[in-house]
């Protein structure tokens, strides 16, 4: 169980280009942090670095639990969700099949899947093929795994973009509940998050 994410003196580069240098901040349990910055500033890369996909050029990313520092691999395998621009849904399968796979793979069970379906009002979509869903419906199906497989750290990349006003508010409620349960949220955003969040600006960009 992750209770704190610490980023110390982190530098990321893609190829020759340095995205940002010496970035330090921490996210504690119950806190939401909104990463802002221009296109290409490195918000997505930072999220992917926290998820362990990109190796930092310098600095470190540490996860702490109640009993001290956690092994990064274990923390990532069981403690975080990364929801990127892509929803990770197969066009040819039904939303229900995809949600079930995503949830069971990430450690959920039938009861939590049912809860997620209710929380995101997915009932009417479950039997539909993903190719027939709108962008917003796809995003909601993907977001469902946050609820269906509870993990403490949510890394969200533009989670709101395809959602309508009501759904944004709905997602805000889910985020508030997650924070109240001791969760952590790190989100890259251009729009404001529907919950109070500490903003951190990521430098540079072009």
């Amino acid at each position: 169980m992750i209770t704190r994410l610490t980023i110390e003196n982190l530098s990321l580069s893609r190829g020759e280009r340095v995205l940002f240098d010496a970035l330090s901040f921490a996210v504690s349990a119950g806190e939401a942090v909104a990463l802002t910055g221009r296109n290409g500033a490195g918000k997505t890369s930072l999220l992917r670095a926290v998820a362990g996909f990109i190796r930092p050029a310098a600095g470190r990313i540490a996860f702490e639990g109640a009993a001290g520092e956690l092994e990064p691999e274990d923390a990532r395998a069981a403690g975080l969700h990364l929801l990127g621009h892509q929803d990770g849904l197969k066009p040819g399968r039904t939303a229900g099949e995809e949600l079930r796979f995503q949830a069971l793979w990430a450690g959920g069970d039938e009861a939590s899947i049912a809860e997620a379906v209710k929380a995101l009002q997915l009932e009417p979509l479950l039997g539909l093929e993903v190719r027939k869903l709108s962008a917003g419906q796809r995003r909601r199906t993907a977001l469902a795994r946050l609820i269906a497989a509870p993990r403490p750290l949510w890394l969200l990349d533009e989670p709101l973009a395809p959602l309508d006003a009501d759904r944004r508010a709905g997602l805000g409620l889910l985020m508030e509940r997650h924070l109240a349960d001791g969760g952590l949220i790190l989100a890259a955003v251009h729009d404001l998050l529907p919950i109070p969040a500490r903003a951190i600006e990521i430098g540079g960009g072009a």
Partner: peptide, 16 residues
């Protein structure tokens, strides 16, 4: 390739 293109490989990599 398909899992890579649609982002499902990210999800699978963060699994158990």
């Amino acid at each position: 390739e398909r899992d890579f293109e649609d982002g499902a490989l990210d999800l699978i990599a963060l699994g158990p």
